[in-house]
Simulated scan of single mutants.
Amino acid sequence: MIRVQEADFDGAALTAALRDAAGPGVGGIVTFVGYVRDYAPDTPTDTLFLEHYPGMCERELEDIAATARKRWNLDGAVIVHRVGALPRNAQIVFVAAASAHRGDAFRGCEYIIDALKTRAPFWKRETLAGGNSFWVEQRQSDQDRTDSWDEDTANKENP
Rank of each mutant, 00 (worst) to 15 (best):
M1G: 15
M1D: 11
V4S: 02
A7G: 11
A13W: 04
A22M: 03
A22W: 08
P24W: 01
V26Y: 09
G28A: 13
G28R: 10
V30L: 05
T31D: 14
F32H: 10
F32V: 08
G34W: 03
V36P: 07
R37D: 09
Y39S: 12
P41G: 00
T43N: 07
T45D: 03
T45Y: 01
Y53V: 06
M56S: 12
E62G: 09
E62I: 04
D63P: 02
A65Y: 05
R69P: 04
D75W: 03
G76I: 06
A77N: 06
V78D: 03
V78A: 00
V78I: 11
V78W: 06
I79F: 03
V80C: 08
R82F: 11
R82A: 00
V83E: 04
G84Q: 03
G84S: 05
I92K: 05
V95E: 00
H101G: 09
R107V: 02
G108F: 04
C109P: 05
I112D: 07
I112F: 02
D114W: 10
D114F: 07
A115M: 15
K117I: 09
P121T: 01
F122S: 03
K124W: 01
K124Q: 08
R125I: 12
T127Y: 05
A129G: 00
N132A: 13
S133T: 11
F134I: 07
F134K: 06
R139H: 11
D142A: 10
D144T: 12
T146E: 14
D147W: 02
A154I: 05
N155Q: 15
E157D: 15
N158G: 06
